[in-house]
Simulated assay, not measured.
Amino acid sequence: MKIEWAPLRVPLERRIQILVTAFFTSMLLILLSVSFLLVAGSLIYGGLLVRSLMVTYLAYVFVHHKKTQSVVDGNGWMITRTNPLHRHYRDYFPVELVKTAELPPTKNYILASFPHGILGTGIGINMGLEISKWLELFPQVRPKLGTLDQHFHVPFMREVLRCWGLVSVSKEALIRMLSKSNDPKHKDNRDGFTSNAVAILVGGAQEAMDSHPGQYILTLKNRKGFVRMAIRTGSSIVPSFSFGEVDIFDQVANPPSSLLRRFQDFVKKLTGVSPLIPVGRGFFNYTFGFLPFRRRIVQVVGAPIDVVKSDQPDSQYVDKVHGQVIEALEKLFDEYKDKYLENSKSATLVVH
């Protein structure tokens, strides 16, 4: 395999972007490792005071999550959601955000977001780490990003995720977020925001396993839970499509009948997480490594699909709204692929 080396002379700004991107790409592993070491180290090697504090904190994590689902009701500390470090990460690709319709801050929203890609990088930046562009385009609408509930059971890691505006995709957490009042005078809206928009990567781990450059394969046909949640809470569904998301990483070939895919399916059933083997670039080469490729990601936010609120969603109505979501996503893809994809002529959308 011929290695394509990066040039030795690179502007300082790009070097900084590479370092920041390496940090955030490894963040989940870093958080899990640090959390484990802090807990284990405190309980094994700490004195009585340290052990007591750790046990108290672990009890707090359990009780707090059970009571509040670890949700941060407002935007949280803005310094953790928009700062120069996060902007370097955004500009590495770069990641962009495109508005196609208004999202009035008089209701709450579920952003049905596709595709997942390897890490969900585009939407993670726009609605989690670097929300300045979102706040500019959608004033008074709080951006939140849904992730696996088990992440909020991990001590210390959960605190970082909460600072970035992440919320659990558990039923309880979503109901808590999407049932919030939109009244400007309500105590929860003292920060000037009156609406919550929760982004859900509907395809999840299954869709991540199908992520390869140029391939837009969505896992959606049998995913209707987000529609039921929208109907139960009266939240509008907003289709969102991130062009280029699948292009920043490749992964080791894993066709459906392969041994690797069967292993991935097995682990996913046990843990909810698929063990991917991503293929990217390195610090000094463009051929292999764990860094994502510098490829543009454009998240296009579609028009909201309003629903009729009901505590007991009718299956036929769920199917109707679900069909509208699929139709809206196909329309977004056809309308914007020529503008935001380099090889748009060969790009096709497959909905599983």
Rank of each mutant, 00 (worst) to 15 (best):
W164S: 07
G165F: 11
S170T: 09
K171N: 10
A173R: 09
I175F: 05
R176C: 01
M177K: 08
M177S: 15
K180L: 08
K180P: 08
S181Y: 07
N182H: 04
N182G: 10
K187C: 11
K187A: 14
N189W: 11
G192L: 07
F193Q: 12
T194K: 12
S195M: 04
N196A: 12
N196Q: 12
I200A: 11
L201S: 09
E207Y: 00
E207C: 04
A208K: 05
M209P: 00
S211G: 06
H212M: 01
P213T: 07
Q215G: 02
L218Y: 11
T219W: 15
L220I: 12
L220T: 15
K221H: 15
N222R: 13
G225C: 07
G225W: 03
V227S: 08
V227M: 07
R228N: 15
I231F: 02
I231A: 01
G234Y: 10
S236H: 05
S236G: 09
P239F: 11
P239D: 14
S240R: 13
F243M: 09
V246N: 12
V246I: 11
I248K: 11
D250I: 00
Q251S: 09
A253S: 15
A253G: 10
N254T: 03
N254I: 00
N254A: 12
S257L: 13
L259W: 15
L259F: 15
L260F: 06
F263G: 08
V267I: 13
K268H: 11
L270G: 07
L270E: 13
T271P: 00
S274W: 08
P275W: 01
P275V: 00
L276P: 00
I277V: 14
I277F: 14
V279L: 09
G280W: 02
R281P: 05
G282A: 07
F284K: 15
F284H: 13
N285R: 08
Y286D: 13
T287G: 09
R294S: 08
R295C: 01
